[in-house]
């Protein structure tokens, strides 16, 4: 059995989780502090990829990065670079789709953060960077970790947008989800079952992790 799809899915999910981690926290932190109107607007825009059909997200991405897309055109002309139909195009699609999960859970964590801790740190002379990494982040750890796990799981299972921007090329862009679809089309049920089981196992582990995190969170520590 060729394990490339597992390897490819994992690397795509890991890298896109890393990206959404920083972008999601950055967006959450600043939007949690924004005035109410701006907050509402940005919140809608940033959460949109979660509720849009993944194919619509894929469509938008293709408009931007395909060789005759808004940005893809220049990349192709100047560097002869073609992003679509590569494995890293999938990083882009999974990042966009998983971003809202990270952003929303992190924002929830930041909003429930006791502002007095921030104020106490500031009056004690601690720098804002120190306060963010040593006080805010550890205090919001549970919420942020839950966001990380959820966006990782979403990245791992992403199909719609990924298949549009990265397609299915065995040993190059195949992920678990696109492989299952392909195997089903080829009526290769035996192999499809194997991949379905692998997928079930990973998903269940992730859910278990989220539940454990939430339980710890409720216990208050």
């Amino acid at each position: 059995m060729d394990l490339f799809p597992l390897y490819n899915s994992l690397r795509i999910a890991l890298i896109s989780t890393l990206i959404t981690f920083f972008l999601g926290i950055f967006a959450a932190y600043y939007i949690a502090k924004a005035p109410r109107l701006l907050k509402g607007v940005l919140d809608c825009v940033l959460t949109l990829p979660m509720v849009l059909p993944p194919t619509v997200v894929g469509f938008f991405l293709l408009i931007i990065i395909s060789p005759n897309g808004i940005i893809g055109k220049y990349l192709f002309e100047w560097y002869n670079l073609r992003i679509t139909m590569t494995w890293y195009a999938a990083i882009l699609s999974t990042s966009v789709v998983a971003f809202p999960l990270m952003y929303r859970t992190a924002r929830g964590a930041f909003e429930s953060f006791d502002k007095n801790l921030l104020y106490a740190g500031q009056t004690l002379g601690l720098s804002n960077t120190y306060i963010f990494w040593k006080i805010i982040m550890p205090t919001c750890k549970q919420g942020i970790l839950a966001g990380v796990v959820l966006s990782f799981a979403r990245g791992l299972g992403e199909y719609g947008a990924t298949s549009m921007v990265a397609g299915y090329t065995p040993n190059r862009t195949a992920t678990i989800s696109t492989t299952v679809y392909q195997l089903w089309r080829e009526s290769n049920d035996a192999l499809a079952y194997k991949w379905v089981l692998i997928n079930l196992f990973i998903s269940l582990s992730v859910l278990l992790a989220v539940n454990l995190l939430e339980k710890n969170h409720k216990r208050g520590n």
């Binding site: 801790l117 106490a120 004690l124």
Partner: peptide, 27 residues
């Protein structure tokens, strides 16, 4: 606030929950 050197004691004490007492005082 970092440059003002003014101590502020909060109603809910605002001790840093992820730090021990010693780390809190040392902060």
């Amino acid at each position: 606030p970092q440059k003002r050197r003014i101590g502020l004691l909060f109603q809910n004490y605002a001790l840093f929950p992820m730090m021990t007492l010693l780390q809190n005082v040392m902060s």
